[in-house]
Design a protein around this nucleic acid. Structure first.
Lengths: 113, 113
DNA sequence: CATCTCGCTACAAATAGTGTAGCATAGTTT
DNA sequence: AAACTATGCTACACTATTTGTAGCGAGATG
């Protein structure tokens, strides 16, 4: 799967708008999960695999390649970690954690009615 | 693909944490794109298909089912639209639009070096 | 050298997504 | 009323992506 480079055509948009590249990237299986799990700090490949519980190494590797190419993640001595930009991104997304709890309550309530 | 109901096991987590269900949902092909495109206001099925440029009706329909089940989208006279909760969610995500422009610049700069 | 751990690849099977055609229903026009 | 239109959505064969297991090659340790 081609890397969704901002400025070029991506899945879902011919316009090449940056947000579309970003949505394409984040919409790929596990991309958000990997970023989310890197919040806790750097991790080796195998440790990251475990944080993600059920990710296959094949997929983990391809997602990491994409995330590296797009400067959200890089690899240092300590393992994979978020870049400056990755940190900025997760800062935006972080509120989802709290919101999801409130959302869960509503969804489960609706189920029980 | 099973609907990632918060509270039950989902892709990437046995714990059933709400955030994991949410990340699973948002991480599915086109889920973010659909939500993003509904920002502009309600749309009929076919109109939504066009906003998303290249989504197949099959997939659009399954994503919509999931989003409806999880109360982020519903269908009214005017077509599909974000629910109260869908609006809350997009409010969190909205800053990605601006951030992506800044990100694009950095990524493209790095390419040209 | 034997044994670990590491990042990562191979590859076949399973699953998910695409694209085109078109059905069924409802409303409009002639 | 027959013909035309537009809608939401399904069928289905094809293609692409993901999974899961096994294991390689490199480096560290004893």
């Amino acid at each position: 799967m081609a890397i969704p480079l901002p400025g070029s055509q991506v899945r879902g948009s011919k316009t090449g708008k940056a947000i579309m590249a970003l949505l394409d990237l984040l919409g790929r299986t596990w991309a958000l999960g990997i970023i989310w799990n890197l919040q806790q700090g750097p991790a080796t490949f195998r440790e990251l695999q475990q944080r993600c519980e059920k990710i296959s190494p094949t997929l983990l590797n391809s997602r990491l390649k994409e995330l590296k190419a797009l400067q959200l993640v890089d690899m240092q001595e300590t393992g994979y970690q978020l870049t400056q930009q990755g940190v900025e991104l997760i800062a935006i997304i972080l509120p989802l954690g709290d919101w999801s709890k409130h959302w869960e309550k509503q969804v489960l309530e609706a189920q029980n009615v």
